[in-house]
Design a protein around this nucleic acid. Structure first.
Lengths: 240, 240
DNA sequence: TTATTTGGGTGAACGCTGTTAACTATCGCA
DNA sequence: TGCGATAGTTAACAGCGTTCACCCAAATAA
């Protein structure tokens, strides 16, 4: 790991400038608005020059998606580290931070958590690799749940039932986290899908026909979830 | 409502042929692959002719989205009508049918339940209108839950808490369903977001890094949910 | 029956897009 | 000083949504 040469510094600087331009277009006009020509125009370049940095538009978008996963994960890790030692407090803070980032960045959320366009199929399917930004993000919730489980086991379906129903289907998870108690694995999957569903429906505006101010519903669900965990420290409150 | 003239018949026939072509392109190549020129080519026409039927590509995609909402809603209504008189059985059958349709039609699911592209902003925001296909679809789950609530009230958070937290924010829902008990409104929102989250994560392949065969997880969650409703008729089972 | 209006379809064109090819200038190194 | 890699250029191709002017056949009116 030697110091980067001048060439390398310029190269990564240009690459991030390209990705910044792509993100700006993503935010203002959606994923369809990301165009090599527009990015190059904003940079005072011509479009073919971008091919020195990314082999195609889709590869650029995939790289941007990876960066967004990392940005969100770093945000959640910082939130966890600031939330004290109680795992339940860490989890609550992370859930709120996840929603806050998602609501504040709907276009970015849509890119990484929405319907994968066929061009990004490769990117999303590579998630089986534990080093994939998507997998690294997903894993950020696992450790706090393990901690919580060891500190004060929360009620779950009986382990025999879980083993029978989920059994060997959790091997991808085990591959990245070693031996995770199956109750923890289930709690993670159940909780993560609930969190995702709630936030995605709000960001995608799928609830406007039924409810206004989805944040109230979010805080309510959070309170119900912690109550289900066996009554944690911070219940309800916290959301105005 | 007089009989349609010959002109009108031909017109609607051509319009549905256009939408069929659009759907075919959606399925094979994603939403980006829907192009007026490709549709027209497949029909033996030229692209500008389509403008006699739809004012723009986005309008065509919005119309297709509306049709897909209706298709899914009709499917779920048929499922409900075939599921006997017990509301809990109706709900379980509808949940399974929702997942089955979504897994079988990932591209269509992505169009109507994924990230809304800025071009479809108008379409999704119009969901506040109860006659909007999206709102009509969402409402399909409400009535069975009302029935279930009246037949055997399931445990919910106390009504005072719900009123305090959700209060007037449910007016859009009330607008389409009249006076819905607030416990029912909460149960609907909570259950629908859970169902959506689980199915969307499977269809969008957001769980591949953690679990294989998401159907097992789905059936497990379904069993947990019915248990939470106070132990229903059909528990677990049903999914191999 | 004849004249006319309407509606559906065509062809050409504009400006945009991703991508490739050939070419050029510059930077870093021996 | 000279050479090779690197980063950029221009030109071009094919495809896209969209608009315009035009045309023809079918339905309608006289």
């Amino acid at each position: 790991m030697t110091a980067p040469t001048r060439r390398e510094r310029l190269r990564t600087a240009t690459a991030t400038e390209i990705k910044d331009g792509a993100r700006r277009l993503l935010v203002t006009g959606g994923v369809d608005a990301i165009s090599l020509r527009a990015i190059a125009r904003d940079m005072g370049m011509t479009a073919p020059a971008i091919y020195r940095y990314f082999p195609s538009l889709e590869a650029l978008v995939a790289a941007l998606a990876g960066d967004l996963y990392d940005e969100l994960r770093l945000r959640l890790e910082a939130t966890r580290d600031d939330a004290g030692a109680e795992p339940v407090d860490q989890l609550l803070a992370m859930c709120r931070a996840f929603r806050a980032w998602s609501v504040a960045h709907p276009a970015e959320f849509g890119l990484i958590f929405g319907a994968p366009s066929p061009g990004l199929d490769g990117f999303v399917d590579d998630c089986v690799d534990p080093d994939h930004p998507g997998a690294r993000f997903g894993a950020v919730f696992v450790q706090p749940i393990i901690d919580l489980w060891h500190r004060s086991p929360f009620p779950t379906p009986p382990a025999e039932l879980l083993r029978q129903q989920l059994g060997g289907r959790l091997e991808p998870l085990r591959l990245s986290h070693g031996e995770v108690p199956i109750e923890v694995a289930y709690a993670f999957l159940s909780g993560w899908t609930r969190l995702y569903g709630l936030v995605a429906m709000e960001v995608f505006r799928q609830l406007t026909w039924a409810v206004t101010e989805a944040e109230a519903l979010f805080e309510l669900e959070l309170a119900m979830f912690t109550a289900q965990l066996g009554g944690g420290a911070d219940q309800a409150g916290g959301g105005q």
